[in-house]
């Protein structure tokens, strides 16, 4: 079987890859070679390359194209070099949105990761209640983004929303997310925690389930307290899933758009105007394609770099 492949490979390879000698003698040589080289596998990558080109690279290139031009109309455009990149990075509104989004992501991670792990630890491991708990926890994940936004938009309202009404009339705290910046921020943050903590919880739950029983038995034998068991057995073994959870939650929260758009529309003022909301305002609202293109690329680049840094730090620290 392998010999057949090698022979056929060298013949076909001879036509495709010039480096491989063609013809019968080539086949014999390939067979004698202790490590036959065959580059045909590259063809298997082709479908991926093509589909990625159409779904990612080409759209991205049009953005690159816009980012270096000032477009007045399809026929009237001027090459402006890095002008838009300079103006976007200096724009105080963009800078404020950047800091705001970074702060939001940090708060999301600080709340959702510990909460998710805590939830996973207390979730039942077997029996009917395991299924019940899994379904209940997973429920928010099944709701579409803008429906989540709508739910919270209504829920947090002071007049007809259960949450907002309770805070105003039962707790006696004046809460109005359409007027107060802090209230709006808290609403969006709590909504995200409600929507996405389940993802962290499910990942952590799967991670906890994969710990072999003897680890817990050994902890009992060694007289470890519940906290010590968590700290020295469960937490270290959650490293992998938590790395994924942190990356996913960072990326998602840093790119958050739909829910705050539905709930607050970025307001009041600019209080919840995150990078993506600002970007859509520039690109779709004002139709400034040049600045929007430059903005998009910087946004994209920053997410990539930060994910790389997270990933490197988290995986290195484990060695």
């Amino acid at each position: 079987m392998s010999e057949q492949t090698t022979v056929a490979g060298s013949q076909v390879g001879g036509e495709v890859v010039p480096a491989t000698p063609a013809g019968g003698s080539g086949a014999a040589e390939t067979r004698a070679d202790p490590k036959p080289r065959n580059n045909r596998a590259w063809w298997l990558v082709l479908p991926v390359v093509v589909s990625v080109a159409f779904t990612a690279v080409i759209p991205l290139m049009t953005v690159v194209n816009f980012s270096v031009q000032d477009v007045f109309s399809p026929s009237d455009r001027i090459f402006v070099g890095l002008e838009w990149f300079r103006s976007v990075t200096r724009d105080p509104e963009v800078r404020a949105a950047f800091v705001r989004t970074l702060l939001f992501s940090a708060q999301v991670l600080l709340l959702e990761i510990p909460l998710g792990v805590a939830l996973a630890v207390v979730m039942p491991r077997r029996g009917v209640w395991m299924s019940v708990a899994l379904v209940l926890v997973a429920l928010p994940l099944l709701i579409p983004w803008n429906v989540v936004g709508t739910i919270w938009q209504i829920f947090a309202r002071g007049d007809i929303g259960l949450g907002g009404w309770t805070i105003n009339n039962v707790l006696g705290i004046n809460f109005n997310y359409t007027l107060d910046s802090t209230d709006a921020w808290i609403t969006v943050l709590v909504m995200d925690v409600w929507h996405w903590t389940p993802l962290v919880a499910l990942l952590a739950y799967a991670g906890l389930r994969s710990i072999p029983g003897p680890y817990f038995q050994a902890a009992q034998i060694d007289g470890a307290s519940a906290w010590a068991t968590f700290r020295h057995i469960q937490l270290p073994r959650l490293r992998g899933v938590l790395t994924i959870a942190i990356l996913l939650r960072f990326m998602d929260s840093f790119m958050i758009y739909t829910e705050p758009f539905v709930v607050t529309g970025g307001g009041p003022g600019n209080a919840t105007s995150f990078l993506s909301i600002l970007l859509s305002k520039i690109a779709v609202g004002q139709f400034d394609l040049g600045p929007a293109g430059a903005f998009s690329l910087l946004y994209f680049l920053f997410v990539q770099i930060l994910c790389y840094v997270f990933f490197t730090v988290l995986t290195r620290s484990g060695r």
């Binding site: 003897p214 034998i221 020295h232 073994r237």
Partner: peptide, 28 residues
């Protein structure tokens, strides 16, 4: 107050060997 060793290694992986050995004593 029983000590038990299992068939496959069970370690507190992020700890040093020293801390692993000390763990049952420190807990007590």
């Amino acid at each position: 107050n029983i000590a038990q060793v299992f068939q496959f290694p069970v370690l507190y992986e992020e700890m040093s060997v020293y801390d692993n050995l000390a763990f049952p004593l420190r807990n007590r």
